[in-house]
Amino acid sequence: MNELISVAVPVSPLRQRLIDDMSMRHFSRETQRNYIRDVGRFATFLGRPPDTATADDLRSFQIDQRDNGVPVPTMNSIVAALRFFFNHTLDRPDLARRLVRIKQMRKLPVVLSRDEIARLLGATTCLKHQAALSVAYGAGLRVAEVSMLKVRDVDSERMLLRVERGKGGQYRNAMLPADLLTLLRQWWKLGQEQGVMHRDGWLFPGQHAMKPISTRQLHRIVVEAARAAGITKRVCPHTLRHSFATHLLEDGVDIRIIQALLGHAKLENTAFYTKVATRTVRAVISPLDKLGLFTPGAAPPG
């Protein structure tokens, strides 16, 4: 009988050094995968190892991206990967400075109303999906953070969710609302009955209990729930995080507290939600209204 022998593909020393640099900084698996892909894209363009690149090579690469219609967000993501590679893996900050990050107009995020959120969560097809999306909205987590939560990350005594795999490998505490804890306990009980939940396991297991639910599956779950709820807005998992921040802002929560809950490094990223907080705008009284010129019984101007 013929035996199939799997041969491990050797990893070049340079690539392994990049992986080690990212692992040392606790980069998420998704970030590491993206950085490796983007550095590899540059190496393919170059036609030789990327550690032999010159400033002219970087300039030619970015011009080629522009001419080929690469979207601006993608170009900036590649810049982030290459800057890390040249700054940390090669210790060549002189080359990293040659990379140009392209400015882009930031679009206003899609935000769901509270009624739409309730309809979306009610339209999920199972308790696990409802619990996962409720975490995204109730705690304001990124989709990758929801995916990587473990059962032990739920701290019911302090009413916190420990986010150990946040953006950039950052650790933080997220809020754990009482209603969300109730829902998670229901999911824990059902998950144990189904044999997929374990105290040291993932809070939201994937198709295989030893692996977490994928971000792609969470995206599909949100889209399908929105469609079932009759929501016509373009919705993704991050929409729930946008809605969390906007609703807190509309309720008068201090913006620096929201910044901490979201794990934003810069306040300007959190302040962006003031542009979509419609309830906050409606609460402001215009100077025109204070003149009382057009209210019934007001004296005509003159």
Results as ranks from 00 to 15, higher is better:
R15Q: 12
V143K: 08
S12T: 14
A136W: 09
G138T: 08
D57F: 02
M105G: 14
T89L: 07
D251M: 11
R37L: 11
Q217P: 00
G69W: 05
D57W: 01
L112V: 03
K189P: 00
I78A: 14
R106T: 12
T44G: 05
G69A: 09
G47L: 12
W188Y: 13
V135E: 03
Y137E: 01
S6E: 12
R59Q: 13
T52E: 15
R33D: 09
P109Y: 01
L82M: 12
L161D: 10
A53M: 06
K233P: 07
L112P: 06
A55I: 09
V284F: 11
P287Y: 05
Q259H: 07
A139E: 08
D179C: 09
L288E: 10
P49E: 03
R119Q: 12
L180M: 03
L95D: 13
H242L: 11
V253Y: 10
R48W: 11
E250K: 12
G297A: 09
P177V: 01
A43M: 05
C126R: 13
D251I: 00
H88C: 00
T89M: 07
L249I: 12
R114A: 15
I78Y: 09
G138F: 03
A123K: 09
L203D: 07
Q16T: 01
R17Q: 14
H129A: 13
I285A: 11
R92E: 00
L180A: 04
E157H: 15
H247Q: 12
W202R: 12
A118L: 09
L218G: 06
E3S: 11
M22A: 11
D20Q: 14
Q192G: 14
L18Y: 08
R185T: 04
S147I: 04
S214Y: 03
L293G: 04
A260D: 13
L180P: 05
E164H: 04
I285D: 14
R29C: 11
L161S: 09
R256T: 03
A96Q: 03
L293D: 00
A298D: 06
N34M: 02
T44F: 01
L82H: 07
L149R: 08
R152Q: 10
R185F: 01
K189E: 12
